[in-house]
Design a protein around this nucleic acid. Structure first.
Length: 312
DNA sequence: AAACCCCCCAACCGCGGAAGG
DNA sequence: TCCTTCCGCGGTTGGGGGGTT
């Protein structure tokens, strides 16, 4: 027999969290730490699914969340990371201190996509819209070239999984998967993958793809230097407000705090050996960067969250 | 002032891999 | 080894708020 069920779903609350529920969850985690999501709701006196508790904590209640608007540097970092990793939001979030995968995903869909379209760049392929449109087959033309509409329904349709798969060329998938593996590797610091021989598939299906015939990694992401040195992700830095309205009101204040934090936690203190991905993507030492995390304390749980061994 | 529209984002859903029994 | 559950992830939804008419 397997494990017992995670929760009795018919007896759990759904929808928005109340202040009282938040407080219960925060108090419980303060006392007992993260993890054991299955048993947490009962132990904390919450009528919630463990999954819901985890989500609430990770995306909203965690004290190290940055909050506030994304900076221009964060925008560019997200764009660059997305060009390398695709929709691997958790991996991207691991490179952005105080940001959650959900937050970045939302921000991508609501702001950055539009920004890239305005630049004439396809947000899925990171290539110019013209070349994407020209290379797209008739079956994908309508979705690949669809403008980011103001209509929610149409943007949702455009975002759907199938379309994304259709629009992502084979070589990019290969590159992204390889990079994703590197990002997960525990010993990935200082890995030089610039000259790794990432081969482009040459099978018949790939030949029909828009950049399959001998296209190099550099051509897929021409603006990215793939000489990556992966630094350890940032962890833990106290932050504020557990309320959406408060968050909006405090945006300006948080932005200032954010900048101050970045000065404190930038990579100026890192040795030359520890140059991180952010730096390699062109950020300056006082910009968003996580390479000082070595000096911060990890819980076993948070550490394993970011450093899953490849063969685990 | 009310109705409508659009945007944002917190929360949900479903899936796949990991892990327990 | 197999079955079941847990955990985490990415995609999607829908309610609330703000702006416009």
């Amino acid at each position: 027999m397997g494990r017992s069920p995670c929760c009795e779903k018919e007896h759990t609350n759904k929808g928005a969290w109340t202040k009282e529920e938040d407080e219960r969850l925060i108090n419980y985690i303060k006392l007992h730490g993260e993890g054991c999501w299955r048993s947490l709701p009962k132990a904390a006196g919450l009528l919630r699914c463990g999954k819901s508790c985890r989500l609430r904590w990770i995306n909203y209640l965690r004290p190290d969340l940055k909050r506030g608007n994304f900076t221009e540097e964060e925008d560019e970092l997200i764009i660059n990371l997305h060009s390398l990793l695709g929709n691997k939001w958790s991996l991207i979030a691991a490179r952005l201190p105080g940001r959650t995968d959900n937050e970045i995903k939302n921000y991508w869909n609501t702001h950055i996509k539009r920004k890239l379209y305005s630049r004439g760049i396809d947000p899925q392929t990171h290539r110019s819209l013209n070349s994407t449109a020209a290379a797209t087959t008739t079956t994908t033309t309508t979705t690949a070239t669809a403008p980011l509409s103001n209509s929610r329904s149409s943007s949702s349709n455009y975002n759907n999984n199938q379309n994304n798969k259709n629009n992502t060329n084979v070589s990019q998938i290969e590159t992204q998967d390889s990079l994703a593996q590197f990002m997960k590797a525990p010993d990935c610091i200082n890995m030089n993958i610039c000259n790794s021989n990432i081969k482009i598939p040459t099978d018949s299906s790939a030949e029909e793809s828009n950049c399959s015939s001998g296209v190099t990694t550099e051509e897929v992401c021409p603006e990215i230097n793939l000489e990556l040195y992966i630094g350890l992700p940032y962890q833990k830095k106290p932050q504020v407000s557990s309320n959406f309205k408060e968050k909006k009101q405090a945006n300006h204040h948080h932005h200032q705090q954010t900048q101050q934090q970045n000065l404190t936690y930038g990579c100026s203190g890192a040795s030359a050996k520890d140059v991180c991905l952010c730096c390699n993507l062109g950020l300056q030492s006082n910009q968003t960067c996580s390479c000082r995390v070595i000096e911060t304390s990890f819980t076993a749980d948070s550490f394993s969250r970011y450093y899953k061994p490849l063969n685990s």
